[in-house]
Computed example of a mutant assay.
Amino acid sequence: MKTKLLYLLFIAAPCFVSKTQAQTFTAKAGLNLANVKENGGGLNLDYDMKPGLHLGLAAELPINNWLAIEPALLFNQKGAKFNNNLFGTKVDASIKMDYLDIPVNLKVSQKMENDMRIFATAGPYLGIGLAGKVKANAGGQTVDEKITWGSDEDSMYKRLEAGATFGAGVEINMIQLGISYDLGLSNTSAVTDDGYSSKNRILRFSVGYRFGKN
């Protein structure tokens, strides 16, 4: 149901945009600080943030002078790190996941002096798992495996993810500086024994360049 609703939002979004307003595009890239939130399963680990990258392209479809719809395509690196003692054994592990995320944000902006504009965004996103790897070293034993995607018991993670994203930033001329937070809402783990769930979290810092007709 969540996935169907997101698809409807993506398809319907441009219909709400006034054709009299000009469209612009923003190429963006930056730093991710990713983590995961675990629940259930009898083993909840305290993960550390894992640095990663993101890059993509967003379109700004104005509704009026201060409100717009902003769909985007974003390559996003997610995951987490763990470096601690577990049952008396030193464990050093990392999860790296590459996603193609499709957010559709509602963007509110206000023009200030000296060609500066401040903005805030919020909306849903759909994530599609592309590739990933799990690495671990515990007690001299090493694991280095590619992530398997699916919903069956032989898979590690589900390929589709749904969540919400929130952000804010400033534009100076055509340069955009932003900060955003992705809140994964769907369980990405294919293993759900004892109610186990894993949800992605990302704190993202972006630099963008806006182009197109204003």
Score class of each variant (00 low, 15 high):
Gln77Thr: 12
Leu55Met: 15
Lys28Ile: 02
Asn85Gln: 13
Asp48Phe: 06
Leu45Thr: 04
Pro71Gln: 07
Ile128Ala: 06
Gly40Cys: 02
Leu67Glu: 03
Ile118Phe: 13
Ala22Arg: 06
Asn39Pro: 01
Phe10Asn: 02
Ala120Phe: 04
Ile102Thr: 09
Gln21Arg: 13
Leu8Ala: 15
Gly56Leu: 04
Leu67Phe: 12
Val91Met: 09
Gly56Phe: 03
Asp92Ala: 12
Leu100Met: 14
Gly123Ile: 05
Leu45Trp: 01
Leu100Gln: 06
Asn83Glu: 15
Asp92Asn: 14
Asn35Tyr: 03
Tyr125Asp: 01
Leu43Cys: 08
Gln77Glu: 15
Ser18Cys: 09
Phe87Val: 13
Ala13Phe: 03
Lys37Thr: 15
Phe25Ala: 14
Ala122Glu: 02
Ala131Trp: 08
Gly123Val: 07
Lys50Pro: 02
Leu45Glu: 02
Lys111Ala: 12
His54Leu: 11
Ile63Phe: 09
Met49Pro: 01
Asp92Ser: 14
Leu45Ile: 08
Pro62Arg: 01
Thr20Gly: 14
Lys107Glu: 04
Ala120Pro: 01
Lys19Glu: 10
Leu73Arg: 04
Asn65Cys: 02
Ile118Glu: 04
Pro51His: 11
Ser18His: 12
Met116Ala: 08
Val36Ser: 03
Ala122Gly: 13
Glu38Lys: 10
Gly127Phe: 06
Ser18Asn: 14
Asn76His: 10
Val36Glu: 11
Met97Thr: 04
Ala72Thr: 03
Ala12Lys: 00
Asn44Gln: 12
Ile69Phe: 08
Glu38Met: 12
Leu9Asn: 00
Ala131Gly: 08
Val108Gly: 10
Leu57Ser: 00
Asn84Cys: 01
Leu86Gln: 12
Met49Lys: 14
Lys111Asp: 15
Gln23Leu: 10
Phe25Arg: 04
Asn64Thr: 07
